[in-house]
Amino acid sequence: MNVRRKSKAFQVLFAVAGECEFDENLIYSIAKHSHFWKNLHGKGIVLMQESTLCAKDGMKDGFPIFLGYFTTALAFGLLTRTSGLTLVQGVLISLTNYAGSGQFLMMNLYNAGSFLFEIALSVFFINSRYIFMSASLYPHLIDKKSVVKRILIGFGVTDENFAVSSLKGKMLPFPYMMGLIFTAYSGWVSGTFIGFVAGNFLPPVVQKASVITVYAMFASLLGGEVRRNAKALLVLLVSGLSNSVFILLVGIPTGFSFLLSMLLATAFACFIYTDEEVFGV
């Protein structure tokens, strides 16, 4: 079991190091697995190893995530710029949110002129998966009595941080978590800053075309999903088609239409995906 866990850990490190794309499916299967292991642990079957992890280990594990976040954040920085935000606002988003898909979604809806309520609800829905991740990380944590420490760790539960830390197979001390979380965080924030500033030096036609970066990011996530499971293509069809019909033909406001289509497609996906495909075996 330990060997299997380690090989998965390497896959995640490769994924975040940019060797292949961010493998969301893998992350979810880990989310499921760590939940499973925690339950076994509760029954005394799996014993966590004695932990010797320190802040330096965290920084080492965080470095591949730093690289992946930095490059993605470049695109985000550019997007905030083309959306008409100031440098301070753009960087403030990355500083306070620290969430890839949530931030891209927020800018998307902002550009489409949505209401704040629609943006908030959509961002909440897309982030609801973190409930599951945080909950399954909790049993691995040491020093969880302190309120401040719990808040700081919770702040850093991104898909990649979660995947890497919960795959350690060890109890996770606070300094390790901080090393991991804030190494990755520095990549996210500095990438946003540099992406915004670099936008200055791009010719106007490239700046106009740069709107595509956010959609290219979503499309490349989708490419990976479809390769793993062709059912994702059906979900794309339901999701994209219903949103297009709602916006272009029915004339529903973008934010609300997005919410509707997202929930519709989720229900559809829940129906066509088997439990094994979602949770792994």
């Binding site: 898909s101 409930i131 499309a219 979900v235 497609a265 989720t266 979602v278």
Partner: peptide, 20 residues
């Protein structure tokens, strides 16, 4: 839990179309 894990995949389609 299943829906929460599938939601980010389901969101991709409407994030891309028709706004792209």
């Amino acid at each position: 839990r299943k829906c929460m894990l599938l939601l980010p995949i389901a969101a991709l389609g409407c994030l891309i179309f028709p706004l792209s």
